[in-house]
Design a protein around this nucleic acid. Structure first.
Lengths: 161, 161
DNA sequence: ATGTAGATTGTATATTTATACAAGCGCGGT
DNA sequence: ACCGCGCTTGTATAAATATACAATCTACAT
């Protein structure tokens, strides 16, 4: 018995073929995928496919497995999209916070409003009913004036830390 | 024993809350979702959630369940024209309405704010002075606090019916 | 009221997916 | 050579998800 020279990691090759199969035919279970791969000469178990699917970050919906959105290309890429922390965003973009009745107007660098608002939403502060972001201004709506004062203070603290 | 009057399909309400929960915290299993709903007073079994998830066409990826991409509203339904009704928009995108003084903050699915605001403008409710839409938030400005309360209530009714 | 059809849900279970564990392989250092 | 380390995989099984079936419940017509 001898083995063919291994120029390419078998696994990588298999991952590529999996993606190809998915663009061609719908696949609704790992076992179905296993059978389809077998027809192409690739013989692995369901367990391996489970791991492959996880690695490819495939999504499973009612129509079966699908490639991750858009940027499907980057294979081995592994940077986590950690939700950006509010502090980071504020340090990077935030300028100042001004209270106005039950609202707080947060000025940012041009283009910074959207990301700051997103980070703020993610924090889910209870005082905040919602935010709306323009280009360099985030409007923060609080349920009442007192809460707005609270929020403004806290934002200023972050701005200075 | 008597039953509360059923003004609203319990199911629709639950579906809305599921979507909201998903925008706030990651959910990696149906049982986890079940526990999170229970904290909000909704008590159903895993089997029901499995069916709900299928109906919402949620996607499951390595990070857990996620809302369907962008145009999540358009179901298998074919006909789409006419003036988009507010109800349709709310069913498709709306999450919840929070009153804040003379304003109402309406949270929506990401990308849903613009269409919902447009539909709202089209209705021309007299209590509403104007609306501003971001990505997932519509800010509704009313002429006074009382009117805002009225609007918030009506929006919630639509969300549940 | 009574009946019927369609929805909705829970229970129990089948199906599907994830993973703990151990075996095998390839590679580099000793 | 041998050892050890990291990576990959299969087996067996745990965990998660989907579904058949039956019980209600709702709406609507009789």
């Amino acid at each position: 018995m001898f083995f063919a020279r291994r120029e390419v990691p078998v696994k990588t090759q298999r991952l590529n073929i999996i993606r190809e199969v998915l663009t061609q035919t719908p696949v609704t279970s790992q076992d179905e995928l296993r059978r389809k791969l077998r027809r192409r000469g690739i013989h692995v178990t369901q367990a391996t496919l489970s791991r492959d699917i996880h690695e490819l970050q495939l999504l499973k919906g009612p129509r079966g497995y699908a490639l991750p959105n858009g940027n499907g290309a980057a294979t081995a890429g592994e940077e986590d999209d950690q939700p950006p922390s509010l502090k980071e965003m504020m340090d990077g973009f935030g300028l100042r916070a001004i209270q106005a009745m039950n609202q707080v107007v947060l000025k940012t660098v041009l283009g910074g409003a959207q990301p700051v608002a997103a980070a703020l939403d993610l924090e889910g502060w209870p005082e905040i009913a919602g935010t709306i972001a323009g280009d360099d201004t985030v409007l923060i709506i609080c349920t009442d004036t007192r809460q707005a004062g609270e929020v403004a203070t806290r934002l200023r603290t972050i701005l200075q830390g």
